[in-house]
Computed example of a mutant assay.
Amino acid sequence: MFTNVLRKGSIVLASTVLAFTLAACGNNGGSNTAGGNTAAGGNNTGTEQAADLKGEIRIDGSSTVFPITQAVAEEFMAVNNGVNVTVGEGGTSTGFKKIINGEIDIADASRHVKDEEVADLKAKNQEVVEMPIALDGITVVVNKENTWAKEITVDELKKIWQKDSTVKLWSDVRADWPKEPIKLYGPGTSSGTFEYFTEEINGKKNESRTDYTPSEDDNVLVTGVAGDKNAMGYFGFAYYEENQEKLTAVSIKADANAPAVAPSVDTIRDGSYKPLSRPIFIYPLKSALAKPEIAAFLKYYNSEEGQTLVEEVGYIKLPAEDYQKNLDQLK
């Protein structure tokens, strides 16, 4: 039933209507579904259907978290055909703006909520609940024909990506690299991945050179790097895994004397892929937890079924106790 949602190029224009289509053709029978009216508490594992579960759940935010949330939404709606779940991918900051403005119920985020966003919510008598749902490693990628940039230091990445960078050619990074122009691709400024990368690599959040091709759609970045021998980009690990036949992941050296570490499930999980390993999140409105359909959806998201989907779309699931902590917040 679950389709590989990382292949967003074919569905992105329909992402806002997919929920309605799936809801219309979902399974009308059986008892294997998420939650129901008991989803906010108890020991329900997310596999009992509530026939009267109805409503709409609106989600937007991180393009990195999008594949997980979209996969969960597809499976949840297939067995809860009275619930419509729409999932956008406008970027983490956009997701928080929308939840502050009351436009959505859940924000996908590839960074922690900011103090000022918490304050804006409080001013409207609202708050969000932080739920970590997976681990990700921001992956620096180059074209398959790139035979020189197999590994790079954090300082060299900073030299390339910092504000007002003077790097124009690969040879500006290392003298023995080609005297060819670097074509750069990366997330847009509303992306949590952009914020995390700039803070960890450039030393200051949101400070970056601006002469690169930005996009909130990671498939645009994949296509750009795959189509240019001299290109470099960065995005979530799952998008690299989905496209590794087209791209090469660059191993990262925390400093000049450190070993070069490639992103992988193991190195992201154990934190040795640094400084670009990170948790990713969903943030439901606390007031929305009282709605049975939203409580059921969140319970399903954190259930064993949801954890399986985390891995199916290429991310690294958290320890079981982390999902249990999320579930405890629903009681």
Rank of each mutant, 00 (worst) to 15 (best):
K159T: 12
I59Y: 01
M1I: 07
V142S: 09
W170N: 05
T139G: 09
V65P: 10
T94S: 03
T16R: 14
Q329T: 10
F197H: 00
I252P: 03
N43C: 13
S31H: 11
E145K: 15
T166H: 04
D211C: 00
E48Y: 08
D266P: 04
D218H: 13
T69N: 14
P284E: 04
F235C: 05
G192E: 10
K114M: 14
V65I: 08
I99K: 02
V87D: 07
V225A: 10
Y240H: 13
F281I: 01
T308H: 14
G306P: 01
M77K: 01
E200M: 15
N257D: 11
G203I: 01
A119H: 08
V154G: 05
T21W: 12
E117F: 01
V17E: 09
K114W: 09
E241S: 01
G137Y: 04
I201E: 04
E180M: 02
V72R: 09
A175Q: 14
L135S: 03
V118A: 14
A320H: 07
G95Y: 12
E75H: 00
A290E: 14
V222I: 13
N81V: 08
N32C: 11
V65L: 00
N206R: 14
N326P: 12
A19V: 13
K8S: 06
S110C: 04
I182W: 11
L285C: 04
S303K: 03
V173Q: 13
F194L: 12
Y196V: 02
V250L: 04
E200H: 04
D270I: 10
F66G: 10
K158H: 11
A249N: 03
D228F: 06
V140C: 10
N27S: 14
V85W: 05
Y185R: 09
A295H: 00
L309C: 12
S171G: 04
E156G: 04
K325C: 15
L18N: 09
T198Q: 08
A290D: 15
L330I: 08
S303I: 02
E56A: 11
D115M: 11
Q244D: 10
V129L: 03
G306H: 05
N80K: 06
L184K: 03
E56S: 07
N146R: 01
L6V: 11
A295F: 04
G271E: 07
S251Y: 05
T248I: 13
D120A: 15
I68A: 08
T64L: 07
A51M: 06
K179R: 06
K204W: 06
N230Q: 02
K299W: 00
R174F: 03
A254M: 10
T94K: 07
Y240Q: 11
E74C: 12
V261I: 15
G41P: 05
Y300F: 08
V220D: 14
W161G: 08
M131L: 14
G186C: 05
E130K: 13
I11K: 10
N257S: 09
A50N: 15
G88N: 11
G188T: 04
